[in-house]
Design a protein around this nucleic acid. Structure first.
Length: 372
DNA sequence: CATTCGTGGAA
DNA sequence: TTTCCAAGAAT
């Protein structure tokens, strides 16, 4: 049903595509907490959390974040460290900082009112081309197409194009996405553009998946030129680096404190976040770590060793910590969740049972791990 | 415009 | 085990 053009669809194909897609969406959409609501702030938070992040990975954070910061005012009034602590474990911490900054700007300069157009939203920190279109269409019904990784993959497969990162290739996908967007509201209770956009992404996330797409259940299978394949670009190679951290504890009365380090505010990576004090590899040579784990960040695999002070009087490792003394923190185990921990620190502390799984709203007492 | 930023989970 | 990512934005 395609015309002979450059990956365009005929007017008839466009209408068929829309109708089949939206029908599929109405009967198959996952029941997610940011759907069926009317709150631009919640839509905003959900879209920022979903940037490069799977639904399953952010669901708990989303609920907890909105309990902690239920409105743009609550978020704006909170200290940044509190926002980061709530975000801890989600990654891409710049998202949290920019969301916080944007909320503060809106509250101080715009009476807390969220812009209701993609153009207005686009000016806020952390809101780029995708997120401005997503919020504008989903929360305000603007007829503007989103192009995320899902939409791109779906349209590449539909049109039988190869992956193309050139400006022209991107424009073609954007134009195609725009041609599919419905331009009128069907009724007061429906949001044609917002639902269409969410349907496109839902299709990519649950049916037109990167690997092993479920073409037999695809609502637009008949309109698809490739039935689920497209040529992908090769990826960069993974690098690996060793790393070592100190686990030092002390007993104070009935509680245990853990020694942590706050990264400097101008650190290139995760500024202001809190982690275990790093050790030079030379200081741990020949020692047996308390714990080994791999922690992958983007293209780098960190092979991490956690070293505990072995003897009661031994301070060799403690002296090997070369960070400034005023960046070190003795934090009581029950209050670890109040800090903006890095994902690695959180993972280690949880692995060693020094930290509960639950978040700040529901602290569970850790079992009181003691270093041998 | 190519890089960089985090993480956990599936295959 | 290793690979491949996921509803991008800023620089």
């Amino acid at each position: 049903m395609h015309d002979a053009g450059q990956g365009e669809l005929s007017a008839a194909a466009i209408h068929t595509f829309r109708r089949k897609l939206i029908h599929w969406y109405r009967t198959n959409a996952r029941d997610l907490p940011w759907r069926g609501i009317c709150d631009a702030y919640r839509t905003w938070v959900s879209e920022v959390m979903l940037q490069q992040t799977r639904v399953a990975a952010m669901l708990e954070h989303y609920e907890r974040f909105l309990r902690m910061f239920p409105t743009v005012f609550a978020l704006a009034l909170a200290p940044e460290a509190e926002v980061l602590a709530c975000w801890s474990g989600l990654g891409y911490y710049r998202r949290a900082r920019m969301l916080h900054k944007a909320a503060q700007f809106l509250v101080t300069e715009r009476a807390g009112v969220i812009p209701d157009t993609s153009i207005g939203l686009r000016t806020l920190p952390g809101i780029g081309e995708y997120t401005s279109a997503a919020i504008a269409s989903i929360a305000f019904g603007e007829s503007i197409a989103v192009v995320d990784g899902n939409v791109e993959r779906v349209l590449l497969r539909i049109t039988g194009r190869a992956e193309d990162t050139s400006v022209a290739g991107q424009k073609l996908i954007r134009d195609l996405a725009a041609s599919l967007i419905p331009h009128k509201r069907v009724g007061d209770e429906t949001n044609a553009a917002g639902d269409h956009n969410q349907a496109m992404m839902e299709l990519g996330a649950t049916v037109c998946t990167p690997k092993a797409p479920l073409c037999l259940t695809c609502p637009v299978h008949d309109l698809c030129l490739t039935r689920g394949e497209h040529v992908k670009l090769p990826r960069g190679t993974q690098k690996s680096h060793p790393a070592a951290y100190l686990l030092a504890t002390r007993k104070r009365g009935i509680t245990t404190d853990v020694l942590l380090e706050r990264r400097s505010a101008d650190a290139r990576l995760m500024p202001g976040m809190v982690e275990l004090p790093p050790l030079p590899m030379s200081a741990v040579a020949g020692r047996e770590p308390l714990l080994r784990l791999r922690h992958a960040i983007t293209n780098t695999n960190y092979y991490v060793e956690i070293h505990a002070q072995s003897g009661s009087g031994e301070r060799v490792l403690r002296r090997a910590v070369k960070v400034p003394a005023d960046s070190l923190i003795w934090q009581p185990v029950p209050q670890l969740h109040a800090l903006p921990l890095t994902g690695l620190a959180r993972k280690v502390l949880m692995r060693l049972d020094l930290m509960a799984v639950a978040g700040p709203e529901n602290p569970r007492r850790a079992t009181g791990f003691v270093i041998p």
